[in-house]
Amino acid sequence: MIQGYASLWGVADLNGDVVQAGAFADSLAKTGAQGVRMLNQHDARAPVGVWDEIIEDERGLFVRGRIEDWSPEARFAAALSRAGAMDGLSIGYRTARARRQGRLRVLSEIELWEVSLVTFPMLPGARFGLG
Rank of each mutant, 00 (worst) to 15 (best):
M1F: 14
Q3H: 10
Q3P: 01
G4P: 02
G4S: 02
Y5P: 10
Y5E: 10
A6E: 03
L8D: 06
G10T: 00
G10R: 01
N15V: 00
G16S: 06
D17F: 15
V19G: 06
Q20F: 12
Q20K: 11
G22M: 04
A23P: 13
A23G: 15
F24H: 03
F24D: 04
A25C: 08
S27K: 07
L28N: 05
A29Y: 03
K30Q: 13
K30N: 07
T31P: 00
T31N: 09
G32I: 00
G32S: 07
A33W: 00
Q34H: 04
Q34I: 04
R37L: 15
N40P: 00
N40K: 06
Q41N: 11
H42F: 03
R45D: 13
R45T: 15
A46I: 04
P47C: 04
W51Y: 02
W51V: 12
D52I: 04
E53L: 15
D57C: 10
E58S: 15
R59K: 14
G60F: 12
L61T: 02
L61I: 01
L61H: 02
V63T: 05
V63W: 01
R66Y: 04
I67A: 06
D69A: 01
S71D: 11
A74M: 04
R75Q: 15
F76W: 11
F76D: 13
A77E: 07
A78G: 04
A79W: 02
R82F: 14
R82W: 11
A83F: 12
A85G: 10
L89P: 09
L89E: 09
L89V: 08
S90W: 10
S90H: 00
I91C: 13
R94D: 02
R94I: 02
T95M: 10
T95S: 14
T95F: 09
A96D: 01
R99M: 13
Q101T: 05
G102T: 08
G102N: 02
R103E: 15
L104A: 13
L104V: 01
L104W: 07
R105H: 08
R105W: 03
L107Y: 06
S108F: 06
S108V: 00
S108C: 08
E109G: 07
I110C: 15
E111P: 05
T119D: 05
T119M: 04
R127W: 02
F128A: 03
G129D: 08
G129I: 14
G131D: 14
